[in-house]
């Protein structure tokens, strides 16, 4: 590995909570990033992209190194109303290092490392049993009324992240972390603080389902 790629691996921490890359990578909050170089934007049938990302791909956007560099510097300036809630990596040399690591880990070569989990309950000191609770999506749909005042159903706005289409575990871990004060944000702690474990599971089921609708 070049020194740059090694630095890039650390910088990938900013992407890791949403994307998997490497052997066995799957879609999470964002699509897996294997074979991303040369891939047209929004082109994996198995992932539900925003209309904006699909349109960008249909309009000819292909993830070359230069295109990725531009996108990662300012995601929503490049693809307005994309569902990727990431402010951007401002420093050009950081991006170069990140892309060096991404090139290494996303290709099919022998150096490709195994994919890492996006998030684990242990990271936030949560009981893994919380992930086994299954929720009622219809109840979640009612509870979601409290969320859509701030989170757009289609995601895609500065300031407040997109939460539709998330994997069950990632969603539950995020809300449980707010509920238990392991993630700090006054509005989200207030909202999550009074949700029961069953209600969190119901919301996860609802927002997962909402993400499947075109």
């Amino acid at each position: 590995w070049s020194a740059d790629a090694e630095r890039g691996r650390a910088l990938y921490a900013e992407c890791k909570r949403c994307h998997q890359v490497g052997d066995g990578a799957a879609h999470r909050i964002g699509p897996h990033l294997n074979d991303i170089f040369g891939r047209p934007a929004g082109s994996l049938d198995s992932f539900r992209y925003s209309p904006a990302m699909k349109a960008a791909g249909a309009g000819g956007l292909v993830w070359t190194g230069a295109a990725l560099d531009r996108f990662l510097a300012a995601p929503r300036a490049t693809v307005p109303r994309s569902r990727m809630s990431y402010a951007g990596m401002k420093d050009g040399s950081d991006r170069a290092d990140l892309l060096a690591w991404l090139r290494l880990s996303s290709g099919g070569g022998p150096d490709r490392p195994p994919a890492q989990p996006t998030v684990t309950p242990e990271e936030y000191g949560l009981d893994p049993q919380l992930l086994t609770i299954r929720g009622d999506p219809d109840y979640g749909a009612y509870l979601a009324g409290e969320c859509t005042t701030c989170h757009r159903p289609d995601g895609g706005e500065e300031g407040i992240p997109s939460i539709t289409g998330w994997p069950h575990d990632d969603f539950v871990i995020a809300l449980q972390a707010y509920k238990r004060g392991k993630r700090v944000h006054p509005a989200m702690q207030l909202v999550a603080g009074r949700l029961s474990d069953e209600e969190i599971a119901a919301l996860a089921a609802h927002f997962r389902r909402a993400g499947d609708q075109p």
Binding site: T148, T149, C150, H151, R152, E157, E158, G159, I160, A187
Partner: peptide
């Protein structure tokens, strides 16, 4: 402030 922009867009849709 940025949150408030996200909120305005979301509540308008809602």
């Amino acid at each position: 402030y940025e949150e408030s922009l996200g909120w305005y867009a979301a509540i308008s849709d809602d």
